[in-house]
Amino acid sequence: MSHRVLTLDTRASGASYGESAKPRMGFFTDTSICIGCKACEVACKEWNQVPDSPGEFSGKSYDNTLALDANTWRHVAFVEQRKPLGADAAAEDLVQAAERANAVDGWGLQTYQEGDGVRWLMSSDVCKHCTTAACLDVCPTGALFRTEFGTVVVQQDVCNGCGYCVPACPFGVIDRREGDGRVWKCTLCYDRLRDDMEPACAHACPTKSIQFGELDDLRERAAQRLERMAEAGQTEARLYGADNEDGVDGFGAFFLLLDEPEAYGLPPDPVATTHHVGQVWAGVLAGAAALGAGIAAAMIGGRR
């Protein structure tokens, strides 16, 4: 539809697809309309044939998976909060509250979770497909690579299970699968994208909380959604990872959240270690030089 092709402004891992480059694709997960049905989790498992996650009853709301890992590539978080919130909570008086409530109805902006001073925040988390992806940058084998869609994918026939990507990811997404030895994570349904299909989770989402598309379009749509929510009094709404100014230079899969990121288990200021790799090497070389100097100094004074 458009001629916008992939140009990723990363110093470390530029994409070089030339003619075959595609527009950068991604997810906009609007958590304000997530109903916590977990259809995304199920669809992801089914399509990608991800092994089950043998869970126990966690006692943490409706969440027994608790985090993304090698066998969970979409994870729905359930946050229970007991505080007066919603559009009318920000109003000065009852009249204004009623007006705001009307505005909310008019815009069709209700979130499903609110009512009676209790709110449920539900959010379907996923790999962020970072612009500067630490997992990809630290991978010594090249198993992790940047696709023509700008997404980050593991080549399972190359991964040797060194595990470096696991602590490198600032979101704790990628993990090694037990009994398999390789690392696994969301591929943004690379196989489906190559056949012009949307990823399984977005396809299964009944409320369009998970939206798939060209990243530029999604960012535009998300900005409009945020403005409308603010006008209707939802001042706690915020976009997470929707521009290039953060520590990973923007997410390929970004979010609209109704609270601070850490309430959902997301880092408020994730930074790709790649941005500091120059300092890391400076430290290594300084240490090596100090060792050389130390050895030389030890020779002073002769053999006794």
Binding site: A134, V271, G283, G287, A288, A290
Partner: peptide, 28 residues
């Protein structure tokens, strides 16, 4: 010489706070 110290850089070049924050000290 770098064989002895690159391992410090390997740990520092992660998101783990206690390693990443020590990128100038751990090599020593």
């Amino acid at each position: 010489l770098p064989l002895a110290t690159y391992t410090a850089g390997l740990l520092a070049n992660t998101a783990v706070p206690v390693w990443h924050g020590a990128r100038f000290t751990l090599p020593f």
